[in-house]
Write a protein that binds this DNA or RNA. Structure first.
Lengths: 201, 201
DNA sequence: TGTACATCAGTGAACGCGCGTTCACTGATGTAC
DNA sequence: TGTACATCAGTGAACGCGCGTTCACTGATGTAC
């Protein structure tokens, strides 16, 4: 911070997102107001309007950042998963991310993502493509990669939300990890079967 | 309505829940205020306080009703599912319920359910027990019924949310049903395997 | 290197709004005698 | 069957609040000459 003056913030755009995330974690999405963000960033109530058209635009920016971080978090769990064990590790990372950033995770998946926010749309598609890539690499022979990757994503996403909503045991990280691993293994053991399954019923 | 007077509503308690659900579907949870509920019920802003301690109490009542309806909806899809086909039908009903009542469904799973609302806690446990019962009946020999039923619930719940959030194709009910069936079959084909799976990793 | 000026990123007052909740109240209902 | 009265379920005014957003503004920065 070589900032001599206090008038110009320096990087209010990023500071707003940071403040918004803090508020989100502290008060849930109810506490996320533009005014509160401005207050926390130490700036007048209207300053954020220089960087965001309205409240919705800020929320989209926060959600997009969340998607990017989730992607990094998953990649960090395993760069190129191919065995069930690898994939289970990625799944555990997904659920852990949700539990570590509950309000952010909810904000990311709260609504049909605003299609006017390219940043947000791009981030969503990146996640979706990432999951599809994982499944393709792990099960190269699968007929319908899309259907299977949706199944994987749904399973892990559901585990994340049920934990988040207090419907499952979250007392220790290991308890969570164990359930996630067991669920993933149950699905993966079946993976060849999906090709023969009566998909259309 | 044998109501001669207009002063006493008759059944404002139920009317509030009804109004709340309408508002939920129209404006999402943002539109759900006690004042709006009162307005819609044709009653003064403070009348609901005769029946609900505060906003939270009303929300809990709405969520509890949602759980009860979801249970009925599932039971209607199949009274005693035992084959993969039966279970897939129940899963489709679950996702369909979410898509037909998006805001209600979100409200039901929005937060760790308020433990001071017995009505809500009871409704949650009823759903959870129902799913466990399904899995037990369908797979009587399973070692760890809890783990498997959690897996089933998570998969279906995740499918519901991903559809709800616009991450999957919801263009036609049949497209939705097809994905749900394919996912469920993928899991069920594996069900015996979960017993042998390295659950603890 | 110095100056004029356009542009940018803030300020702060003000607007109208809907909210949750309180309070003292009053009209309607039902029950005891 | 009629009356007195307790109880219940409403009313409506009022409170203080935080919100999103607008507006005219001003201080700081950077650039052209």
């Amino acid at each position: 911070m070589s900032q001599s003056s206090t008038y110009h913030h320096g990087d209010l755009r990023a500071a707003c997102v940071r403040a918004a995330r803090e508020l989100l974690e502290e008060d849930g999405s109810a506490g996320l107001s533009l005014r509160a963000v401005a207050r926390r960033a130490g700036v007048s109530a209207t300053a954020p309007y220089r960087h965001y058209a309205d409240r919705e635009a800020l929320v989209s920016a926060v959600a997009a950042e969340g998607y990017r971080e989730l992607a990094e978090h998953l990649a960090a769990a395993h760069p190129a998963p191919s065995t069930p064990d690898d994939l289970a590790a990625v799944a555990v990372a997904y659920v852990r991310f949700a539990l570590e950033h509950p309000a952010l995770f909810r904000a990311m998946f709260a609504e049909p993502c605003d299609p006017t926010s390219e940043e947000r749309v791009a981030a969503t598609q990146a996640i979706s493509a990432y999951v599809r890539g994982l499944v393709r690499d792990a099960f190269p022979g699968t007929d319908d990669t899309d259907a299977l990757s949706t199944t994987v994503w749904a399973l892990v996403h559901g585990l994340a939300f049920l934990h988040l909503d207090g419907k499952l045991d979250t007392s220790t990280p290991e308890a969570v990890a164990q359930q996630v691993r067991a669920s993933v293994f149950a699905l993966f053991t079946a993976s060849p079967a999906i090709r023969a399954a009566p998909a259309a019923g």
